[in-house]
Design a protein around this nucleic acid. Structure first.
Lengths: 158, 158
DNA sequence: GTCGCTGCAAAGTCTTTGCAGAGAG
DNA sequence: CTCTCTGCAAAGACTTTGCAGCGAC
């Protein structure tokens, strides 16, 4: 990718920081810090993919079979995290809603409409352009979300 | 907006053309042209919003109550149209899947989080940039959707 | 007339909720 | 101890499917 200032994002937030934020969030709302909630956050953090509630649940079951975490708890925790802007959800087609940690840096998504894979990128030129347009319209930009839909390299060659 | 090539989009495809394409599509696949299918296409065409199957069905029920179109037919027709790339489905956030005519694609939105106004625009420079990135990743771009959230001019001055 | 289409209702999926016992604070 | 959280199962929401009669061609 020679002339593009387009990058895969870095993990900009350490897990300890994330966990600490989560604990603060819970405390502020009179909620409890449970092993299930920690495991869900940790699994999201350690996954580089966008996870569906089901795939997240499967990962947790594999890694912590003795916990016997219920799918309902996964749904409940994801909703909690989403409300608090700690995770964001994306969804495409038949594959349902997918979640990722929102604390990771600002980025956009390519979504393959055939296999559902999501490729993340950050493009400084697009970000800059957005800022310019916002300024022209006298619009105070707070956040954005962008998805590009199409067919990925692998699916094209099939 | 002096130096920006940013424009409200046009309806680039006429309905008669669309309908004709649809009829050809049906004929080529040994399928039949029915009043329900026509009404679904027309309603999609006349709506400037992204419609859920349910909202599309409601619109049709309001406009053509005597047809008594079933929701199942709406789902079946949307699937058919999506498979044929005549409509695209997108979904973001907590809301479900939404459909729009593919021919109307490529547009972006500023959304004011205070008053809720939506300003729709197309920016050629961002489009160009997206094409470049897609090419780099060997990704066949079909559609995109972008939302910029913030506070509009009017709400800022209040 | 043939064969695909439609509405209906039933069946699948996916997600949320009620509940009683478990566990964090 | 208190009050939230959890797993379970049942309920709810959304989507698909089977079927018998209808309708495009």
């Amino acid at each position: 990718m020679p002339d593009l200032k387009t990058n895969f994002r870095d993990k900009t937030v350490e897990y300890t920081q994330l966990l600490s934020d989560f604990k603060i969030l819970l405390k502020e709302n009179g909620l409890k810090f449970t092993i299930q909630r920690e495991v869900i956050l940790e699994t999201l953090y350690n996954s580089n993919e966008h996870l569906t509630p089901e795939s997240l649940h499967n990962l947790i079951q594999e890694k912590f079979p003795n916990l016997n975490t219920g799918i309902a708890t996964v749904y409940r925790t994801l909703s909690l995290l989403e409300e608090s802007d700690m995770v964001t959800s994306l969804s495409f087609g038949a594959q349902g809603k997918k979640y990722e940690l929102g604390a990771k840096s600002h980025h956009d998504h390519f979504i393959c409409t055939v296999c559902g894979v999501i490729i993340e990128f950050v493009d400084e030129e697009i970000e800059e352009r957005q800022r310019k347009i916002a300024k022209e319209l006298d619009f105070e930009m707070r956040d954005h979300s962008m998805q590009i839909y199409g067919i990925c390299k692998n699916c094209k060659t099939k």
